[in-house]
């Protein structure tokens, strides 16, 4: 495992910890899209079916279990916790996420490494992860003001994607057998979706001002 991959995993973990901290400390999920969180839970559940079939390393297994458990806990809190659910911006979280599910599934049926149950679901999880941030970005855009922890959450999530691209570039040169086109192309699309957010994040950071997205 190279340094980019490891830092990518760590920023991914940090983003989830920031989200859990926000929900736990403020008992609020305002600014967070339940639809994006549900899509991520589905991404992890469909991709990590290999927990039952392949053992890669203790690190790999633990991280997978942490991602599954934390995403389910976040969805549960946003739906069921008496205080947290009241702060959910339901009227702003209107992105038609079923279209993302359908499109990802159809694409997975067409484009996969092998036509097998686990492989098709793996491709589905890759396509779905690439677009799962969209409801979250739309919600932020609609609310305009982004609170500090929500801004950090999306920033670290974007950093994770960017670091995975460096990881693939590194692997491409080091490991001549590394050709994972489905993951790499989807990853590029996914990272591109953050470009706009990153732009405004750095402007607010440079000016030492609150993060605001244009309407």
């Amino acid at each position: 495992m190279n340094i980019f991959r490891f830092l990518g995993d760590m920023t991914h973990l940090i983003s989830i910890l920031i989200l859990l901290l926000k929900i736990y400390a403020t008992k609020s999920c305002s600014g967070i899209s339940l639809k994006t969180q549900e899509l991520y839970a589905l991404v992890f559940l469909t991709r990590y079916l290999d927990l039952f079939t392949d053992f890669i390393s203790v690190y790999n297994t633990v991280m997978k279990l942490v991602f599954i458990a934390s995403s389910l806990a976040i969805v549960w809190c946003m739906r069921n916790h008496p205080l947290v659910r009241r702060s959910y911006d339901k009227q702003l979280d209107t992105f038609r996420h079923y279209f993302l599910l359908l499109a990802s599934f159809l694409l997975a049926l067409l484009l996969h490494e092998k036509f097998a149950f686990q492989e098709v679901l793996w491709a589905f999880s890759i396509y779905l992860e690439a677009v799962a941030i969209l409801p979250q970005l739309v919600l932020l855009q609609r609310s305009g003001n982004v609170d500090n922890l929500t801004g950090q959450y999306v920033f670290f999530l974007g950093a994770y994607r960017a670091l995975y691209i460096f990881n693939w570039i590194y692997r491409y040169f080091i490991d001549p057998h590394f050709t994972r086109w489905i993951a790499c192309v989807s990853g590029l699309v996914q990272t591109a979706l953050y470009a706009d957010f990153f732009y405004y994040y750095f402007i607010s950071w440079k000016n030492n001002a609150k993060l605001q997205l244009p309407a």
Partner: peptide, 10 residues
């Protein structure tokens, strides 16, 4: 396993 390629990334 031998039937599918192991995917080592998360």
């Amino acid at each position: 396993s031998s039937t599918r390629e192991v995917k080592d990334e998360l």
